[in-house]
Nucleic acid binder design. Structure first.
Length: 496
RNA sequence: GGUCUCGUGGCCGAGUGGCUAGGCAGCGGUCUGCAAAACCGUGUACAGCGGUUCGACUCCGCUCGAGACCUCCA
């Protein structure tokens, strides 16, 4: 491990040295998707952010258990007229069994995440599969005296909890202010206090997903699953809990309160939150007409998209911003990212080629030191709270070195080239998870053979100064998306 | 109204109390039959107003502006 890893802890609002509880083991829990609709851009950001964390921790040699849940129960629609379960509503509209909806969108989520080269977590538990554990934890909280039964539901007593604990310590809220500001809404008569939250809720007739419990037939409260599943799979104290900044309050605040009430101690050591995304400066919302699913990005099939953007372009774009800052999507920004990504990939191919050939004679001052510095800088960037944009800026220095070597401007020894290759594989492939989309495909050999033939014919035409034929070949290829470039060593080509 | 993010050059996006981020675009050059790529060079950037300081884009305060959350859902 190179130096030490620093993580920004939302709880302390400071960067802290990362020291796992039980090295070399470490655990990370991230709030996953609610599977009631197609995966969209808002799903990509946390997934990619914590994929980077997962990958880097593994690279550093930790044995990482990464848990990311699937939320499939008890969600009320925000903008619906009546409070109907999101999954249930979808099921009713589409004449499906609720679990069928859940399975369908879970699969869709996986397809998109795979495309983005987001590694599957070690465990992907579902809320619906942990009803028993949730009931058990609610019982613990009741026994501890921090919850009360009202009707068929169970609520968390925030005020009582706050007497000996700080409810709001993660998001910087003060309970009195929360109470003062909150409005009294209908359907809250059961609560003693407006800021109390449900641990178990009795099911209304429209709720299709329901389970028996000591209190009523119903479903678990909105924050239970994460407390329960993180503790079940990572232990009563674990290292990292992540999620979007929008989850800080109330979700994560409630998780903290529940877990503390049930266990008597805190469970999470480092809280990490990724910032939100905007589209042309606006938040993404169905009402604004800028709600774009990942599939729409990949196909370009959306009115505000000028073209399709590949999964790797999206991934590169997200990684080019630091995870704690907002990131703004626009066609212009994505096109810039696409070019940058391709430049990086091109350099990777050039590097491979340089290693294949016997490199230039090692004369003059070896840039060995420069390569070594680059390696250090790459680690420094990641160690500083996973600073992927700075890492990427260093990788473009690598790109420059490779291109200079390719142009014969700079001499790199075979040792240097091997080091650069190692750097590239480590940081681009392994840690950033950026794969070369243009070399994918099963017909590679055939295409390569055809291209070799075409370029040979073109080369003969050029020798005869038959520019018409030469240009016809190049232009026609360009028309089907293949770019031909003439270099000193002959023509090279790439699929755009 | 409250809490939390944030406001950097044409676009995106790092960072620091005084020293070049980087990518994309633009401009000039090298190379080239042409083109593309690559390489070299190039930009009066840090929302506004005060304050602290020898010195602030970087610290503090205020103003303006953007976003998230503050509610029944995660």
């Amino acid at each position: 491990m190179e130096e030490e890893l620093i993580i920004y802890n939302t709880l302390s609002r400071k960067k802290e040295k990362f020291e796992p509880l039980n090295p070399p083991f470490t655990g990370i829990y991230v709030c996953g998707p609610t599977v009631y609709g197609d995966p969209h851009l808002g799903h990509a950001r946390p997934a990619i952010t914590f994929d980077l964390v997962f990958r880097y921790l593994r690279h550093l040699g930790y044995k990482v258990r990464y848990v990311r849940n699937i939320t499939d129960v008890g969600h009320l629609e925000n903008d619906a007229d009546e409070g109907e379960d999101k999954v249930a509503k979808k099921a009713r509209l589409e004449q499906l069994e609720p679990m069928e909806v859940v399975q369908y969108y879970t699969d869709r989520y996986h397809v998109s995440m795979d495309a983005l080269n987001v590694l599957r977590p070690s465990i992907e538990p579902r809320a619906s599969g942990h009803i028993i554990e949730q009931i058990e934890m609610i019982r613990q909280i009741l026994d501890a005296g921090y919850a009360y039964i009202s009707g068929g539901s169970v609520y968390f007593d925030v005020e009582k909890y706050n007497k000996t604990n700080h409810y709001g310590k993660l998001s910087g809220r003060v309970l009195d202010e929360l109470i003062a500001c909150s409005r009294n809404l209908e359907g809250q008569e059961e609560k003693h206090n407006s800021c109390d939250f449900a641990l178990w809720k009795e099911a209304q007739p429209e709720h299709i997903m329901r389970w028996p419990s000591p209190w009523s037939v119903g479903f678990p409260g909105w924050h239970m699953e994460c407390s329960v599943m993180s503790i079940k799979y990572l232990g009563e104290v674990f290292d990292i809990h992540g999620g979007g900044m929008d989850l800080q309050f109330p979700h994560h605040e409630c998780e903290i309160a529940q877990s503390k009430a049930a266990l008597g101690h805190d469970t999470v050591r480092y809280w990490m939150h990724n910032n939100m995304i905007t589209i042309e400066g606006q938040k993404m919302a169905k009402s604004l007409g800028n709600f774009i699913t990942l599939e729409q990005f990949f196909t370009g099939n959306h009115p505000s998209l000028k073209q399709a953007y590949t999964p790797m372009t999206i991934r590169f774009f997200i990684l080019q911003a630091h995870y704690r800052g907002t990131v703004d999507f626009s066609n212009e920004a994505l096109q810039a990212a696409e070019k940058g990504y391709k430049k990086l990939m091109e350099a990777g191919r050039t590097l491979k080629k340089l290693i294949g050939h016997q490199p230039l004679p090692p004369e003059g001052i070896s840039p060995g030191q420069a390569v070594e510095n680059l390696r250090k800088q790459c680690y420094q960037a990641l160690n500083d709270d996973f600073n992927s944009p700075v890492l990427i800026s260093h990788l473009f220095e690598l790109v420059r070195m490779v291109n200079c070597a390719n142009d014969g401007i700079e001499n790199l020894s075979s040792h240097d080239l091997a080091s650069l290759q190692q750097l590239y594989l480590t940081f681009v492939d392994e840690i950033l998870g950026l794969t070369d989309e243009t070399t994918d495909g099963s017909n590679q050999r055939v295409v390569a053979g055809l291209m070799e033939l075409l370029l040979k014919i073109r080369q003969q035409a050029r020798m005869n100064k038959d520019w018409a034929t030469s240009d016809q070949i190049r232009d026609s290829l360009s028309g089907i998306g293949i770019t031909v470039k003439d270099t000193k060593e002959g023509a090279s080509w790439m699929i755009e």
